[in-house]
Simulated assay, not measured.
Amino acid sequence: MASLNLLDEEEEAFHEEAAVVDTSFQLCLVGGCLTDSVVHFPSLRNTLADLWHSIWGICISNLGEKRILFQFFHKVDISRVLAGTQWFFNNHLLVLHRIQPGEIPSLVPLNLIEFWVQVHDLPSRMVTEHMTKQFGDFISQFLEYDMAFRPPNYQNYMRIRVRLDVTASLK
């Protein structure tokens, strides 16, 4: 305590603290189950923590209004969850959104989800990069394609990643 000094330097420390608050959602997802029924939060928290098995851990918090905050502590963990397939809890689709700087987790719309779509039995002339983009935009919003993944004997096949508005299909 003898070396404690209360001078003008305190104000700088306060500004550094504010910068930490701005980036506190850097490795966070906000999500919710696509259902009208009640989701048992403790079960969801335990199940997803076990399923995702984060290297550096995960903090799962209930935000209320059927929203959950997932805080990761390493970029590898959040990338692995986002790159995975669709996630479900009790047969309900889990809609996830990566929080961007300035976004408020309780206000982020949870209506978009990414899917891999497979298109089969195409004429070989239609299996092109240009056609994947057209198919993707026809389905919803094209994101990417994977022409490298082709099972043997499936030359007339394509995989397209699209972003769908899942709430539009509920109306």
Rank of each mutant, 00 (worst) to 15 (best):
L63I: 04
W52T: 11
N90M: 11
L48F: 15
L51V: 08
G64C: 08
L93H: 12
L96S: 00
R80C: 07
H53A: 15
G57Q: 11
S61V: 14
H97C: 04
V30L: 02
Q71V: 02
R67A: 04
N46T: 08
V30I: 06
Q86W: 03
L27W: 09
L82D: 01
R80I: 00
N91P: 01
V81P: 03
S54Y: 06
L51P: 08
D50T: 12
G84T: 00
Q86T: 11
A49E: 13
L27K: 04
T35S: 09
R80L: 05
S61I: 11
A49S: 15
F73C: 05
V76K: 10
F73D: 01
L63D: 00
N46C: 06
L48S: 08
S79H: 11
T47I: 10
H97G: 05
H74L: 01
F70K: 01
F73K: 04
W87M: 03
D36V: 08
K75G: 06
G57F: 10
V39Q: 07
S79D: 13
N46K: 13
S54F: 03
Q71R: 13
D77A: 07
T85C: 09
R98Q: 13
S43L: 14
I78R: 01
V39W: 10
L63N: 01
F73Q: 00
F70D: 00
V38Y: 12
G57H: 07
L82N: 03
A83Y: 06
D77Y: 07
L94H: 09
F70S: 03
S79E: 12
I78D: 02
C59E: 15
H92M: 09
